[in-house]
Amino acid sequence: MQPFTTLTSTAAPLRMENVDTDQIIPAQYLTAVTKEGMGKGLFSWIRYNPDGTPKPDFVLNKPEYQGAQILIAGRNFGSGSSREHAVWALTDYGFRCVISPGFADIFYNNSLKNGLLPIVLPEEVVNLLWDLVEEEPKTLLHIDLRSQTVTLPDGQQHSFAIDPFRKLCLLEGVDDLGYLLSKEEAIAAYEARPRWA
């Protein structure tokens, strides 16, 4: 997993609530047996016309948001299906961070396991960020995971919460598996207990 420490990038405003994982990556892309290339399918229904041409109005198709590594979305982002493909699609496309007033639980977890930083900020702040990056798409946001802050060009800072353990995993770029494997003894002891205690 790629470590996450700081990120300075432009941001794409996705002014939509309840963006479910079917929107992020439709089921037709789930037939893959590998993770690679999922970015192609990212938001495909809202990104492309039925004939495959890009919809010019969709935020990711606008030239001014090319290269943005931060996505700013409405509340309940990533709801629905548990498909980790949604996170792979976002990271494969080039996003490293999603900001929203709230994420669905499974999506939030999946993001952390792939080095995609999910940042929860209050609705007012998200509204403000939307206005800001719509007004001036070149706006650079600076994210510092260590200090848990998002800094705007004028120096305004917003802090966000993250579980300390998850933060450490992201900073170091390690996933849960190594930790779980180190618990082998405790797992074996647990398994030795009678089933109907």
């Binding site: 548990s82 980790e84 499974i106 977890n109 999946n110 396991k113 579980d163 598996l177 930790y179 398994e191």
Partner: peptide, 23 residues
């Protein structure tokens, strides 16, 4: 009973355990 992502599927396959924050 709850749904998990594919990374977690790998964790359970390998260790029969998951790291979970109490809801």
């Amino acid at each position: 009973a709850f749904g998990i992502g594919t990374s977690e599927v790998a964790h359970v396959l390998a260790t029969q355990c998951l790291l979970q924050k109490k809801p």
